[in-house]
Structures are given as structure tokens and as C-alpha cells.
Computed example of a mutant assay.
Amino acid sequence: MDIQHWSYLYPKLNISGLFKDSPCDFQVKEVLGYEPIGEGEHIYAWVRKTGLNTAFLAEQIAKYAKLPLRAVTYAGRKDKHAQTEQWFGIHLPGKTDIDWSNFDVDGAEVLKTIRHNKKLRTGVLKANHFKIRIKELTDTAGLEERLETISTLGVPNYFGEQRFGDTRYDPKGGNLVLAEKMIAGEPIRNRNKRSMAISAMRSWFFNEVIHHKIQNNTLTTPQLGDVMELAGSNSFFCVDEINDTLINRLKQRDIFISAPMWGAGNLPSKEAVLAFEESIASANKSVTETLESLGLKQERRAAHLYPTNLKWIIDNNTLTLEFSLPSGAFATSVLRELVNI
């Protein structure tokens, strides 16, 4: 389960740079998509964290609030090697608010709190906003043009390397090593590690499909039998006719060509697309059979990704970028089409 061979959508630029030299070089802010109403049995805490992973901070919040860990939730995990601002939900019915003045976790700061009447659930985010700095660029030739291209035409919606674990010590990433052990039948008793292994395995297969779609030029070119995902929705439909309406909806980013998030059940694709997806599944039978055995069901994910509100400054061999991505998308999928980091 290698991750080094996945194709680029555009010709690779011969530019390298220094990334994440400091957590402040990678800043992320959650965009919730709704406003907490100010009352209810859940406290929403807006927290800035630096150099901490989300699960660890949730444990510290639960400990400080003297609550079981299950009472603390978050909408999404954020990169440890970054400065992030995100929401944590704390279920505290019928109790007074928490005094955060003595909350002392190095790298964490509670910026504000507000009550809400619903639990903060995983995946409810609308988007994430990124501010990224890449320093010591070896060159800038072609960078401006590439940024313009990405702003207009987007990038493949690959799962980023963070999903697969630390690649500094193993080119596969530590989570994929765990996934291969799981495929071989070795039990993983740690619940968190098991979850990460399953997620990495499923994401790896999706990326394999994206790689092959780039190779055969079908990432953004619709085919009969493609499964289209409606923007901002889990709804989808199968293409039985390619017409001007379909092409225009793709251009307007109302719909996206999708690829499978593998699980048990029948693929919704048809014709040549079905044969294509089944061929990749057959070539990776140990992966797909393991995912099916775990009780996962067939789902879809957009194959293509557009960063919105993309802005940049190139100054003194430093690139500063700002853009937003929908929840679940990876900023590194944008960066890999720009710079070797």
C-alpha cells in the first residue's frame, strides 16, 4: 500500500520549499455553518491550539471539567503540527458554566464559549479556512500561473498524507502499516489505532481510484455511468446522458464526478465506469474484502476539489496562501500541485 506513486493533475513544478517550520506556518480555522443560539445543555468552546492533537485536547477538557470523555465532542480532527482554531462541544445539562480561567494546557487557549441546544457532532463543519506559509522557495518560475490554474480548474480531491500517518520513518505512513497488519489478520486492540488504520485503508483505496482516473483522463471528464455527487450533499445520481445541462452543472460546481469510498454493497456506477471501478477493486482485493468485512457500506466522495477565496502573495521566496475547503478536504492536496514540501 504505497503512497508515492499517485499522479499529479498538472506537470510537476521543480520548486521546493520549507513547510511547517513553525506551527504558525499552517493555520486552520473551522467554519461551522451555523450559529450557536446562546442557550441549551451544550457548551460550545472556541479553542486555539498550537502543537496539540484534537483527541488529546478533548481529554484535557474533559479532565478539567470533571466530565467523562464521552461528554466532550468535536466536529473534526485538526493537524497537530499547526495552529488551529476549532470548536469543542461539552455536554453540561442543568449545570452552571465552566470557569476556564484556570485551564492550563500548554499550547491551548479557550477564546470564547457559548451555549447551544444540540450536540456538536463529527462532520457538521461547512468548511475550513487555511492560511499557509511556505518559506525558502528554491524558485518561483511558473508558480503564479499554476495558482491561477488551480483557482480556475481545481485539484484532485486526494486524502492528504496526514491520513496515512508519519511518513518520515516509513514511506507508507504508520497508519497504513497498521492497516496492512489488519489485512493480514492481526488484531489491533487499541480502539483509536484501529480506527485510524481503517480510515487510512479506505482513504488509500479512494486515492488509488483518483490516481487511475487522472491516468485515463476521466477525473473531470464525465462518462456514461459516472456517479455525480451534488455539491454540499450526500445525494448522488448516475449519468445516463451527457448533455449541455450536465456539462454546465459541472462548470458551475453544482455537481462533482465521484469515486467510491469502499464498503459492502453494490457500486452505483454503470457501464464503463462500473467496469473501471471494479477492476481497481479486483487489483486490491485484500483491501476491499477487509473493508467489506468491517461492516462499512459503499459511499461516494467528490473526485475533484476547488479551493475557494484563493489568495496569495509571493515575496522574498516565501509563498503565503489563504483559501477555504469543504469539510473533509485536505490543504496538502492543493499544496502538492504547487511545491515539493
Rank of each mutant, 00 (worst) to 15 (best):
I280S: 03
N157A: 12
T332W: 13
D2L: 12
D226S: 07
N192Q: 06
Y44E: 02
K251H: 13
L321D: 03
T122W: 14
F26I: 00
K285A: 13
E271Y: 11
A108Y: 00
C238N: 02
T138L: 07
S279L: 00
F323V: 00
P307Q: 12
R300F: 09
T84Y: 00
E41D: 15
L178N: 11
I15S: 10
T73F: 06
D106K: 15
T113N: 07
L111M: 13
F130T: 06
G94C: 07
Q162T: 06
L274Q: 01
N216Y: 14
L125N: 12
L325G: 03
E337Y: 00
T220N: 12
Y64H: 01
F56C: 04
R253G: 06
N266G: 02
I341H: 03
S235Y: 11
A141R: 04
W100K: 07
A259R: 13
R300M: 10
G17K: 06
R249S: 04
K20R: 14
H42L: 00
L267W: 14
V177H: 10
G142E: 04
W262V: 03
N243G: 03
H211A: 00
Y64D: 01
I341P: 05
Y158A: 01
Y44P: 02
Q27Y: 05
I242N: 02
C24Q: 14
W262P: 14
M261F: 01
G40N: 10
S327T: 12
L143A: 12
I341G: 09
E148S: 11
K126D: 08
P171M: 03
A281S: 15
T290V: 06
L274S: 03
A179N: 10
N157P: 08
A82C: 03
A259K: 07
S333A: 12
H81I: 03
G160R: 00
L9I: 07
E144I: 11
E35Q: 15
S282G: 07
P268W: 02
Q252W: 02
S286T: 14
I98M: 04
D139S: 15
F206R: 09
E271I: 04
R191H: 06
A303Q: 11
I15H: 01
N284M: 02
F56P: 05
S293D: 03
K172P: 07
E148V: 08
D254P: 04
D104G: 02
T220Y: 09
M1L: 15
N316I: 05
F19C: 06
L250H: 02
K12T: 14
K311C: 01
T332C: 09
R189N: 10
A58H: 03
F56E: 03
N192W: 12
R163Q: 08
W6R: 03
F88H: 00
E41Q: 14
D106C: 13
M1I: 14
I134W: 12
I37E: 15
F103A: 06
Y8G: 10
K285F: 07
I61M: 04
